[in-house]
Write a protein that binds this DNA or RNA. Structure first.
Lengths: 245, 245
DNA sequence: CGAGCGACTATACGCCGTGAAGTTTCTATA
DNA sequence: TATAGAAACTTCACGGCGTATAGTCGCTCG
């Protein structure tokens, strides 16, 4: 067989990349539904069946796309919150939330692809289509929860009984080494924060907020402020010390 | 034309009902994607084109189904929270949240139909497919927010500047007469609560929580407790008076 | 009784995913 | 360098989809 630099393999990689890129363009212009093998082939100048040489089935292609799009989302939000000062946990949470919603608004079809029913009849593989990217996103929020934990802990009275066994091992493999001081309840807090923000963005992207409210942005900004406040850290770096509560 | 009780009209109503029921059965067993005119016709014993005598297009049928399913959801949650004691706002919120998630878990395909990308290529009509049901759901949460408002108000410091003009007129037409003491910020609070709960349930229904957590129920129960607490009302009726804060 | 209308079928078109079989083109080896 | 084989791609085919058009049957009412 040819080595890594073989001509054939290079062409193959290029064609694979082109298929994916055309698929993403179709999705951006016509929604996830527009991702059809025939449309991709038409655009590239191939026969639909030729794509089967690169992806075993349409669902395989979709899964790959979900992976890439989800990874792009994770990159975006990670970059955003990591660019905020380390000593400003409230600012980091704000950055995460704004980046998450901003990405969703800029890539609504991508959001639907990752978080919705992507495409007619699509069946995600066992363990989800993009577990790594999902864990990355959750780990990002866990970082925010970890930074806020000294403040938030006292706001979450000790009735919650989360244990490590409640969580997915793949997630914990990333979270526990990175944030050794974050207890199970802290991970639960991270997931709840994720849920809060995902809920509003999801309602907005799918048009359910628009039928209730003119300006979804205002609602989201309020949500961020209240989220930060509920964690016991004030926006814009003005926050009490953990000791003074 | 025949009167309201005419034989023809009765038969027509029966066939219309049968089409919708078969569609819902197909959805329950095979997901929203399974709702195809041809499958419905096959099940009923008609030709696919015969359905065009009852619904102008497939999207029309889908819109009707969304309306019915959304209404069923609204009925369920309304019944649930209204059955809790009036003087137990925390219990009512709990009832709403449990009923919402319970309905979603019992009717995951219905949840996807209402809140997700229902069906390949479906385009919801302007104003959303089921604005009435959506407003009913939001009005229900507004009732909960209204009951909690005397307690919650002091937890939401006065930096939010919501106005009536921020919200949809159809929603306000239901909310303002029913809860004359609830200010715009209270409606915003209701929408945020909706977002919180929708987010977690949506992540769960679409399988995104399962890749992070073993027991989504535990997370949701924690969410309810913290939600009630954040509003300043204690669970199970033990709550401070608004005056004592 | 007969005209008209409503309910329904038959046929057809262009989409879709995908399987089977055939063809071309490149590559590795004898 | 000749050649066997693999890889890339095409052609043809099948069944499913929404839906447009035209035609058919039977009930109902004047």
């Amino acid at each position: 067989m040819a080595g890594t630099g073989g001509r054939r393999e290079r062409l193959r990689a290029e064609t694979t990349a082109e298929i994916k890129q055309v698929a993403l363009e179709l999705m951006a212009s016509g929604g996830p539904d527009a991702i059809t093998l025939r449309a991709i082939a038409r655009e590239i100048g191939m026969t639909a069946n030729a794509i089967y040489g690169y992806f075993a089935t349409r669902d395989d292609l979709i899964t790959t796309l979900i992976n890439e799009v989800y990874t792009a989302l994770a990159d975006t939000v990670d970059t955003a919150w990591q660019n905020a000062p380390v000593d400003d946990p409230a600012g980091r949470i704000q950055a995460w939330a704004q980046a998450f919603r901003g990405w969703a608004l800029a890539n609504p079809e991508g959001f639907r692809l990752v978080y919705g029913d992507p495409v007619p009849g699509y069946q995600a593989p066992a363990g989800g289509p993009a577990p790594d990217a999902a864990h990355r996103v959750c780990t990002g929020i866990a970082a925010l929860a970890d930074a806020a934990w000294p403040y938030a802990e006292r706001r979450l009275p000790a009735h919650s009984d989360f244990q490590w066994s409640d969580f997915d091992d793949g997630l914990l493999a990333k979270v526990r080494p990175a944030f050794p001081d974050l207890p199970p309840a802290g991970v639960a807090l991270a997931l709840r924060i994720w849920g809060h923000l995902h809920g509003l963005v999801s309602l907005e992207i799918y048009g359910h907020l628009r039928t209730q409210m003119i300006d979804a942005d205002k609602l989201f900004q309020e949500e961020i402020v209240q989220l930060v406040r509920s964690l016991g850290i004030e926006p814009e770096g003005r926050r009490p010390s953990p000791a003074s509560g």
